[in-house]
């Protein structure tokens, strides 16, 4: 800076050439960055420590699940397996015993699929139309409807469980998969509607107006204009629902019969089964298997997830 000032003031005097050289010799181009600055060490150090902290349990689980029982009894949980065996995985999937049956997690897995897939699809379908109607059509009572929906999200589950049991019983679907799917759909509704409403409200309003001038009605605008622009938020909703419903334990126990128990309940029953010795390797394998679905979903759609969350969360 001082160089430039000096240059300007002297420029029209006797020796401008020397001054110009000084300017040209100064810093130029991209500013160099040191890789090992104190700041970088702090940032990466913290990140690595935190990452290790979260990865360590997973490491222990994977290692244990690959060992035989004799090796586990040696007690060194951090040591990698001397002899790798997939026996525990096979057993966890197909033949581990709960108090009631001995066909492992597979039964729970298929139950969970039959619960999660319809619940996710139905809840997203309804919530997206709700959000669209709330954001774009501003019907009479829309504000009230929205407020009630949001307040509903803050009522603790526990308060509602018994009334819902009665309602389902009266409808004759207590204990069935249909009943559980309806429950999941209802409980997902507030947050999903909010998500979709905010996303649709963030889309340019003039687009909606243009479509109306073009003669498109409620459903035409929804399917032909809004849906194609909303892939990210649908992915977000799908991830929220798949992981939420897959990980659900409480509703699964309360609203279904044992033959329909989801994977999480089945896992609990295997791990807590009191017959015989504790098979840590089978338990670890079963736990990883149960967690594999949400993990898989995150990995596949993680980037879309972040984009959608950012888009849905910022705009009110």
């Amino acid at each position: 800076m001082s160089d430039i000032v000096a240059f300007n003031s002297v420029a029209d005097e006797a020796a401008p050439q020397a001054q110009a050289d000084r300017v040209i010799a100064g810093p130029r181009g991209r500013k160099p960055r040191r890789a090992l600055s104190g700041r970088n060490i702090m940032i990466y150090g913290t990140l690595i420590v935190v990452a290790l902290y979260y990865l360590l349990p997973l490491y222990v689980m994977v290692m244990t699940s690959l060992k035989g029982m004799p090796e586990i009894r040696l007690g060194n949980i951090f040591a990698p397996p001397v002899e790798i065996t997939f026996e525990p995985w096979a057993k966890a999937w197909a033949s581990a015993c709960t108090g009631l049956n001995c066909d492992g997690l597979s039964r729970g897995f298929w139950n969970s699929v039959r619960i999660t897939v319809p619940s996710t699809i139905v809840s997203i379908a309804i919530a997206s139309v709700n959000g669209y109607a709330l954001a774009n059509w501003r019907f009479k009572g829309a504000e009230l409807f929205f407020t009630i929906l949001i307040v509903g999200a803050f009522i603790p589950y526990q308060v509602m469980i018994y009334p819902i049991v009665i309602v389902l019983r009266e409808m004759g679907i207590y204990g069935t998969l249909t009943g559980l799917i309806i429950v999941h759909t209802i409980f997902g509704m507030p947050i999903l509607t909010l998500l979709f409403r905010n996303y649709f409200a963030g889309l340019p309003e003039e687009l909606f107006k243009a479509a109306r001038v073009d003669g498109a009605g409620f459903w035409t605008i929804y399917f032909r204009i809004m849906l194609p622009m909303s892939l990210p938020i649908f992915v977000v909703a799908m991830i929220l629902q798949v992981t939420g419903i897959w990980n659900d334990f409480l509703f699964g126990v309360v609203f279904t019969r044992p033959e329909y128990y989801p994977m999480t309940v089945q896992l609990n029953n295997i791990v807590n089964s009191v017959q015989g010795v504790k098979e840590y390797n089978v338990n670890m394998a079963a736990t990883i298997l149960t967690g594999a679905v949400p993990l898989f979903v995150y990995f596949v759609s993680g980037r879309l997830f972040v984009r959608g969350i950012a888009a849905g969360a910022v705009k009110g």
Binding site: E206, K209, A210, A211, V213, D214, G215
Partner: peptide
């Protein structure tokens, strides 16, 4: 009347073209 039944066409500041 609905917009489509009024015999009007509209052009917006933000163009409002359907992006997809």
């Amino acid at each position: 009347e609905e917009p489509k039944d009024r015999g009007i066409g509209m052009v917006f500041q933000s163009y409002a073209l359907y992006p997809q």
